[in-house]
Nucleic acid binder design. Structure first.
Lengths: 191, 191
DNA sequence: GTCTATAGGAAGATAGAC
DNA sequence: GTCTATCTTCCTATAGAC
C-alpha cells in the first residue's frame, strides 16, 4: 500500500468516525483527504469500493494495534486485560478506530457482503482471547483448562457492547473499563 | 395515538429494520405504509421527526414487550432469563424490533439529540434487571444482596452486543441465547 | 386528511483537459 | 495522477387540488 493511499484511507476512517458508514459522503471524504472526488473514483471504483477498502484497512490496523499494546513478556492475566481494554480508551485515534469498528459491525446487518471479513476478523480475535485465557487458567490452576471459546466470545462481545454504550454517551470511559474488568474477573472465577 | 399513526409507525420500523436509520428513505417508507410522501410530512414535520417518533414508538413497544414476556407469578430466576432473552428470538417481529433498537443505539453515536431518550430507557431496563437479580440472590441466599447495578449493566450490554453479532451473521440464534444464559449463570455465581 | 405533481437541491459518478 | 466542470439520478420537502 502506497503512502498516498494510506493517507486517503486515514481520511476515510476519520469521516466514518464522524458521520458513520451510511453517512459517508464522497464529497466530504475527498475534502477531508484534500483531493478531488474524481481522484477518489480513480483509486476506488465506487462508493462501495471506498467502504470495502476502508474497512479492510481498519482490519489491518486493528491487528497491529493489539500486538503493539501487548508486549510478549507480559504475564497472561495482565495481557488478557490489556488486549480487551485496548479498544476502550478516550484517546482520539482509539476512539475513532472504535467507532469505525462498530460501524463495520452495524453495517454488516444490512450488507451481507461485509460479513465474511467481519467473521474472520472476529474469529481470530476470539481465538486469541481464548488462548490467553487458557494460559491464565493453566498458570493459576496448573491443570489443563476446559474449552474457553464461550467465555472468550462473551468477553469480546461485551467489549463491543460496552463501546457502543460509551460512544453513545451512556457511561464514562472509566465506568466502561471498570465494567469490563469486572466481567473478566467474573468469567475467570467460574472456570 | 391513533390507529392510523400506529400503522404508519409500524411501517417506519419495518423500513428501519430493512435499511437502517440512515438508510430510511421517505419515499420507500411512504410506499411501505401505502400512503403518499405528502402525508408523511403531514404527520411528522420532517425526516428527523419521522425518526424521533419511530424511535419513541419503539421505546413504548419495548416496555410492553418485556411485561408481556414475564408473567408476574414466575419465579425470579426464570423471570431474569425471560427478560434478558426476550429480544433474542428469530421470530420476525422480535428480530425487527431488535434491529431497530440496535440502530437507535448506533445512531446516538452520531446524533446527540437521541441520547437522552436512550439513556432513560436503558437506565430503566438496567434498574429492572438489577431488581430481579436482587430477588434471585435474596431468594437463594436469604440475606440482603450487594449492589447489582454493575452486573445488570454487564448483562444488558451483553444482550446488545450479542444481538449485533447474531444479526450480522456471526452466530446462530441458538448459540447467542446459550452464550447469554452462560453469562447470567456466571454473574450470579460470583455474587 | 389525502392525493398528484413538482420544485429544488444534494450526492454519486464521469468526461476531458493538463 | 490529478484537476474542474458537469451530467444524472435520487431524495426531501412543498404547492395546491379534492
Amino acid at each position: 500500500m502506497r503512502e498516498r493511499e494510506r493517507h486517503i484511507l486515514d481520511a476515510a476512517v476519520r469521516v466514518i468516525a464522524e458521520d458513520g458508514v451510511q453517512g459517508l459522503r464522497i464529497g466530504k471524504f475527498a475534502a477531508e483527504a484534500r483531493v478531488s472526488t474524481a481522484l477518489i473514483y480513480h483509486y476506488f471504483e465506487d462508493r462501495a469500493g471506498v467502504l470495502r477498502h476502508a474497512l479492510e484497512y481498519l482490519d489491518l490496523r486493528a491487528a497491529a494495534h493489539i500486538e503493539e499494546a501487548v508486549p510478549a513478556d507480559l504475564c497472561p492475566r495482565a495481557a488478557l486485560d490489556r488486549m480487551l481494554l485496548v479498544e476502550l480508551q478516550s484517546a482520539l485515534d482509539v476512539r475513532m478506530h472504535c467507532i469505525a469498528w462498530g460501524e463495520l459491525r452495524a453495517s454488516a446487518v444490512f450488507a451481507p457482503e461485509l460479513r465474511e471479513t467481519l467473521r474472520s476478523t472476529t474469529g481470530e480475535w476470539v481465538d486469541h482471547v481464548a488462548d490467553v485465557m487458557r494460559e491464565v487458567v493453566e498458570t493459576a490452576h496448573g491443570s489443563p483448562a476446559p474449552d474457553l471459546t464461550g467465555a472468550a466470545e462473551r468477553l469480546t462481545t461485551l467489549v463491543e457492547g460496552l463501546s457502543k454504550r460509551w460512544l453513545s454517551g451512556y457511561c464514562t470511559i472509566e465506568r466502561t473499563r471498570e465494567l469490563l474488568s469486572g466481567a473478566i474477573t467474573a468469567e475467570l472465577a467460574t472456570i
